[in-house]
Design a protein around this nucleic acid. Sequence first.
DNA 1: ATGAAAGCGCTAACAT
DNA 2: ATGTTAGCGCTTTCAT
Lengths: 351, 351
Amino acid sequence: MTADVSPPLRPATLEDVAAVAGVSRATVSRVINGATTVDPALRRVVEEAVATTGYVPNRAARSLVTRRTDSVALVVSERERRPVSEPFIGRMFSDPHFGRVVAGLMDVLRPAGIQMVLMLADDEGSRDQLLSYLRQGHVDGVVLISSHADDPLPGLIHDTRLPAVLAGRPRRPSPLTYVEADQRAGAQMAADHLAALGRRRIGTVAGPQDMPAGQVRLTGFLDALEQHGVGDVVTAEGDFTQSGGASAMRQLLKERPDLDAVFIASDLMALGALPVLLRAGKDVPADVAVVGFDDSNAAVACDPPLTTVRQPVEEMASEMARLLLRQIGKPGDGPAPSVVFHPTLVHRESA
Amino acid sequence: MTADVSPPLRPATLEDVAAVAGVSRATVSRVINGATTVDPALRRVVEEAVATTGYVPNRAARSLVTRRTDSVALVVSERERRPVSEPFIGRMFSDPHFGRVVAGLMDVLRPAGIQMVLMLADDEGSRDQLLSYLRQGHVDGVVLISSHADDPLPGLIHDTRLPAVLAGRPRRPSPLTYVEADQRAGAQMAADHLAALGRRRIGTVAGPQDMPAGQVRLTGFLDALEQHGVGDVVTAEGDFTQSGGASAMRQLLKERPDLDAVFIASDLMALGALPVLLRAGKDVPADVAVVGFDDSNAAVACDPPLTTVRQPVEEMASEMARLLLRQIGKPGDGPAPSVVFHPTLVHRESA
DNA sequence: ATGAAAGCGCTAACAT
DNA sequence: ATGTTAGCGCTTTCAT
């Protein structure tokens, strides 16, 4: 323990450190920024001065001259909430999926010293506000999580020329880098599994056909099944909600009461569908095998626990962060190539 | 539609606006910041120039001189993850509760033009990093969500003299403002309800006893039950996760197979516990009445839907934001008085 | 009511 | 290898 230095009322500046170390501001700056052209002895002196003064760089000042901010925006884009009366925002925020993405991003961003600024775009006003924020260069890049297919934001963000990465392939083709899980491959794994189980009277609760994920999971499933010689598959469309899954399941059961397997395009819909099955006197998996998609919390909440297609959400988010950092690092290169992850089948009890 | 101005390669500065408007930088600055001492006519001219140039203030430059940042930190503090091998951070992040807090905060911060910077403190290194960040004044205030009782962060944050608001009363008394729901009252409501139902063979899945919420919900429940003449209550501790809820429920069932009611200290744990109950051949609520806590998404995802103690999480978060903004507004006043919200019992089908 | 000018703390040429 | 200097874009005295 050394004697206390009298506590600075004003945070130490580069100037203060320079004075203590007996060098110029520039030298201190060089040490701070790890320039190699500094005499080792001087470097030590400066480092000591930094320690005694408790110096921390002022981001605003630095950012003003470097035009970097060492922060990125995490933009959550949601469809406009229809009734303005609806009290609170953020369907996305209360989705555990969102938290998993944040965790994955932070895992990479934090060690890099990059801060995350959380932004929400859920109507035209907030979108304009967001864009002007981005255009003014208050962040070095953006991660976009969009919950709806017709989102104009990928295009608008691309126009800002800011490095950006999308969570999931956008519906309209975009030059922006995206990271997604191979939905088609996932659906195939579900089909293969069901076929391997010897099931032949198969149905599927599809997702909304106006969302890419909904479409691809359905066609991927049907195509794979066809390869297994199963051509006659009953289909009902759900809306990715629990109750949507329930009514789609009812419909399926009416059309094909002797069903022996069903692929449900999201765990949440499966959570709604399972009780319908049980109520109809079907045992899962004995009578009807069920495979879900996502490996979300809902999968374990189901009874029986759901065999489901897992997307490595955290890993994908970390990859988004890495891709973003890479683009920020060398701005000339344009968007980084997109990355597609491979899903895996998680075995539980429903199939 | 007027003719396009040639697109600026470099974002417009105050100087540019001043040139277009034919006034000085100072006057533009006054208009931007709503000073009253500007001639209405000139004001209009300047506003037009702002529009045509697409000017947006540069935060870094402004912050450098004002020493305000128009952003606050949302700090998530978690216990250190024991095995470093554990792949990912952020138990908190994947908790839907977190998302609801974010939504509530954003609801008041966004209209105020305040950005939220997400920060995580889960070991000493990240805590130090966080504190130096805070001390350097990169944010105007902090919202702290802490997941463990012995968190030193409230004290450390108080030492920074930065305006701050805590989510939940800290274990060690602190001068910092906090916002919380009356956990004890909530637990009491659960007990009253179960007692009114005539249940007497009662168990509870408690939260972690090293968390204030875990402790208070347990003691509040037990005390209230005692008042109803129910003294013999079996208890198992969960960790506020779904799987933790499941195993605690199994334990409870083993100790007391004839249980007719259980209070589960979080909906998420209830989501895990319900299937265990059903598997054991118990009908809910006929055989076993279940009351949860939180009124989160999980409550509605449960089958049957959960009767649960509702904390107005979003409203509480909004209140935190308001209290923080107030302290930021007048720094002299010190911490604002804390606020305690009252929980309500939400009736669904499980009890 | 408006303008001129002085910095805020930092980095990056440019000199030495 | 180190120091000198000129800004980055803004707010804010201080004159006028």
